[in-house]
Amino acid sequence: MSKRMENMIAFITGGSSGIGRATAHRMATEGATVVICSRTEANLKKVVDEIHAAGGKASYVVADVTSEKNITLAIEGVAEKFSRIDVLVNNAMTVAWGSIEESDSQTWAANINGSLNSVYYGTKAVLPLMKRQRGGSIINVSSIVALLGAPGMSGYAAAKSGVVGFSRVAALEGAQSNIRVNVVIPGAIATPPTLASVPDSESLHRMESEIPLKRLGSAEEIAATITFLATRDAGYITGSVIVADGGKSCELSVATAPLESLKNI
């Protein structure tokens, strides 16, 4: 594999599992020095050990991304240690379920703090550093619920929709300093939280059947997309939203005849 991220420093929030973990592995394979953060040290250490065993460079910092002070100190500490941060991946998120009627302000706040405020805090902290070094790449991870509604996920949908709007503004404000800001919107991805939310194999099969590619995506596929946006191969891409959902969001679900039967009309 090419070393497209040789000598680059990448900071990844929510890096101890799922898409964050896969992104850390992929970026390390591409030559980056990876720093991952989350609230659970044992999980962070496990991922770092995995990367070291594969010959990559990685370290971790324990931080609560819902605290502006915590994430700012973490980012500033990494910048001081390595003299720069080339890539920030705002991947950490919180999903708190509940219908609009039954949920309360705490549920709403949990979604906003974990999935939107955290993106704001991380971006705000890293922008001055990237401006001083005259460049950088920020990739914010949103969700398919920013495009397609799901009952019980109003707070999460609002937060992830906010990530898209926020990122476009950040892209405009960072452009003069060669700072690129983009969004990746994953669809249904076979991560532990997603699989845990599916009650049985029949439900999983139904979920897959409703995706044009007829399968869930993998964390590694999303990691590859995020990594591409971090590299110079994506040097002219900023303010963009890349949807990686197996085609789910491009299909209008209506009762139509099979394509073959339309040929004779």
Results as ranks from 00 to 15, higher is better:
47 V>M: 03
247 G>M: 09
61 V>W: 10
135 G>F: 03
265 I>V: 11
29 T>D: 11
144 I>G: 02
211 I>E: 05
10 A>C: 08
34 V>S: 03
117 N>S: 12
168 R>K: 15
78 V>A: 01
158 A>L: 05
70 N>K: 03
136 G>V: 09
32 A>I: 11
147 L>H: 09
120 Y>F: 15
153 M>L: 15
215 R>L: 14
113 N>C: 10
151 P>R: 08
59 S>I: 01
138 I>N: 00
21 R>H: 14
94 T>C: 15
76 E>K: 13
12 I>K: 01
8 M>V: 07
162 G>R: 11
156 Y>R: 00
61 V>P: 04
128 P>N: 09
251 E>H: 11
7 N>H: 12
222 I>L: 13
261 S>N: 07
25 H>A: 08
187 G>I: 01
3 K>R: 13
217 G>D: 02
43 N>C: 04
33 T>R: 02
158 A>H: 03
118 S>W: 06
238 T>Y: 13
53 A>F: 09
27 M>H: 02
194 T>R: 13
134 R>M: 10
255 A>I: 13
177 S>N: 12
191 T>G: 05
113 N>V: 09
217 G>L: 10
35 V>P: 01
242 I>N: 01
94 T>M: 15
90 N>R: 04
12 I>P: 00
148 L>Y: 12
171 A>S: 12
95 V>M: 15
203 S>R: 03
240 S>R: 03
225 T>P: 00
245 D>H: 10
145 V>Y: 12
241 V>K: 03
260 E>V: 15
194 T>A: 13
142 S>C: 10
147 L>T: 04
219 A>H: 08
148 L>W: 07
91 N>Y: 14
120 Y>Q: 05
245 D>Y: 10
214 K>E: 07
139 I>G: 01
27 M>K: 00
37 C>D: 00
203 S>G: 04
93 M>C: 10
99 S>R: 12
139 I>L: 01
109 A>C: 09
81 K>Y: 12
139 I>P: 00
45 K>C: 12
53 A>S: 09
162 G>D: 07
105 S>T: 10
195 L>F: 03
239 G>S: 03
211 I>N: 04
156 Y>C: 02
214 K>Q: 14
141 V>E: 02
253 S>V: 14
87 V>I: 15
205 H>M: 14
252 L>M: 12
25 H>Q: 12
237 I>R: 07
145 V>G: 03
147 L>W: 10
7 N>M: 11
192 P>V: 05
219 A>Y: 05
203 S>E: 12
74 A>D: 07
6 E>L: 14
137 S>K: 01
170 A>H: 02
201 S>L: 15
252 L>Q: 09
103 S>A: 14
245 D>C: 07
144 I>F: 10
123 T>Q: 06
151 P>H: 05
95 V>R: 08
89 V>C: 04
194 T>Y: 10
7 N>Q: 12
75 I>Q: 00
198 V>F: 06
260 E>N: 08
160 K>L: 12
120 Y>K: 06
126 V>K: 05
28 A>Y: 02
162 G>E: 06
72 T>G: 09
58 A>R: 05
259 L>C: 05
21 R>A: 14
21 R>G: 10
263 K>F: 11
26 R>Q: 13
97 W>I: 10
71 I>H: 04
206 R>E: 15
150 A>S: 11
193 P>M: 07
150 A>D: 08
60 Y>M: 07
153 M>P: 00
138 I>L: 08
171 A>H: 09
47 V>G: 00
82 F>K: 06
21 R>K: 15
232 R>Q: 14
149 G>H: 06
151 P>N: 05
135 G>H: 06
103 S>E: 06
